[in-house]
Design a protein around this nucleic acid. Sequence first.
DNA 1: TTGAAAGCGATACCAC
DNA 2: GTGGTATCGCTTTCAA
Lengths: 337, 337
Amino acid sequence: MSNRNITIKDVAKLANVSVATVSRVINGLDRVSDSTRKSVLKAIQELNFVPNTMAASMVNKKTKMLSVVVPDIQNPFFTAVIEGTVEVAKREGFFTLVLSTNGEESEEEEFLESFLGKNVDGIILIGSHKEAEFYRGILKPTILVDRYFNDCGHDGVMIDNYRGAYEATKHFIELGHERIAIIDGEHDFNDGKDRYWGYQQAMLESGLSTDPDYHKQGHWAEADGYQLTIELLKSELPPTAIFAANNVLCKGAIRAIRDLDLQIGEDISLIGFDENELAQFVKPQVTVVRRPTREMGLQAAELLVRKIRDTPREAGNPMRVVLGVELLKRGSVKNLR
Amino acid sequence: MSNRNITIKDVAKLANVSVATVSRVINGLDRVSDSTRKSVLKAIQELNFVPNTMAASMVNKKTKMLSVVVPDIQNPFFTAVIEGTVEVAKREGFFTLVLSTNGEESEEEEFLESFLGKNVDGIILIGSHKEAEFYRGILKPTILVDRYFNDCGHDGVMIDNYRGAYEATKHFIELGHERIAIIDGEHDFNDGKDRYWGYQQAMLESGLSTDPDYHKQGHWAEADGYQLTIELLKSELPPTAIFAANNVLCKGAIRAIRDLDLQIGEDISLIGFDENELAQFVKPQVTVVRRPTREMGLQAAELLVRKIRDTPREAGNPMRVVLGVELLKRGSVKNLR
DNA sequence: TTGAAAGCGATACCAC
DNA sequence: GTGGTATCGCTTTCAA
């Protein structure tokens, strides 16, 4: 496996050729006579030689590795995206290395300055937290996924958050709901904001007002979903429907409803943003806005690989790929008509 | 960030010193006069220079990075272990790089031969699939987690699978159960086998026979858990208790029981091996054998770092750390006495 | 304290 | 086709 000490020189000596020749047979590009190739191959075999790719990288500046940086490796959304990424990367001959920052922004910087960060051929940043300035500082091929920043100078793959929230809300309305609440978190990034706007727009368009009491904000965590749902349901005039703006908030909401001994789709209607395990488990299952997680990873990796190969930086404006979402209707919305 | 072109030479030139001196101030080991240090630092700042750690690694053969290889990044068990690992690694100044093989054995080999595999200072293999021979071929510090192979030549961190299964089964028995079934998967590795033996031993010790009809084997997947549970519950003489030998089998079992409209802890008793989201969600919650996931990661990283530092290979026999498990009693086992 | 120079292990250009 | 060698960016003796 990892034969530290044997180098191309040893092989050259044993095979009675120059290191240049050995390098040639290793890379198979230049032509080498059959006989010498054979003896070199034999020597390689005999010595159990494995080329030191790091040394090679030093001269040709390619490592054939990509990195994917995520804020939380325990969130199934991220791992699903990663899976898509890895699939394409592998097909294209790249190794993918995953890095979780555990929500700490500084980690992202550290990574980029580390051995790894400096030696990957390209980077995919999922759900990243920084500001445009930071991204502009990254000089190598990079793709932003799920969260995008204008003027960041890189391509991006994201979904239509606005539309997803809009359709969820519309769905409630079509089935006769009027007291529709939304639980979300800070509006510090576009994805969160867009979801709220989608909700708001749908309400206004239908002539419904957006009661501030029906907008509960937490920190996008499961515990918040639980707490906020309890608050809503215990208020004087509870909503008839709740839109949970991300996967974990939705899980919290499901727990809360269960703990209050209420029946989803009967006593309270619910739609979640993003698929999650509990939404699939409970009966009736919870209607969710499904986003194409794996597909996001695929797209990101494809964009990245293309960018790496198009070395003649076509300096074209960064492109953004926006994938559609789908309202997966299940049984959690009661028909009030 | 990634200033490709500026090297130590540029800094040297600007600061009017030799590259050796620059190297010295970068590494802070050798002594440098305050005045030169200052001017070098200034030059570094001015040029926005970031040393190329890859080149450095070429000479000192250290990269300060570890890698963790897992079969499935979507399984919460693995990500929990990873989290523990990363924590220690970070504290000790190592970067952790995660690699998921998606269950493909060959990936593991590829990884070890890749740029990455050859350039990390140490490796943690979680739930790995190969045979001892393979591991012996890995010449650098390596720790096996969760699954161990005798004569593999490396240290390991695992849990007491036997005991966990034994106690779960005993618990059933103590509460008066006699028709106790087990659902598991292939017995191709020790962890799986040990769980079965623990179950069997507990049964025999209590004078209960292990009816083959009550031992259902699948492939350790959630779908199997579902299917096998259905089979058990629909058989002529259904068991009164089921032991699901891993986390996803348990989830499948919970789904199956729910779909048959049976009440956990009432119509059928259930214990799962390893914590899982559904076990915590349903009411009553499902009793599980809890294993110290994060702790496993911590231990593994600590062992690894120590090994990396003890360069004078003390060739001591490989050590194995076996962590205890805990039967987390919740409400899913009915008292038949 | 500082500098010159010899590597680390490969690649690639230039001769032959 | 094949070999010699400069080079990648840094560390580390060895002298001065």
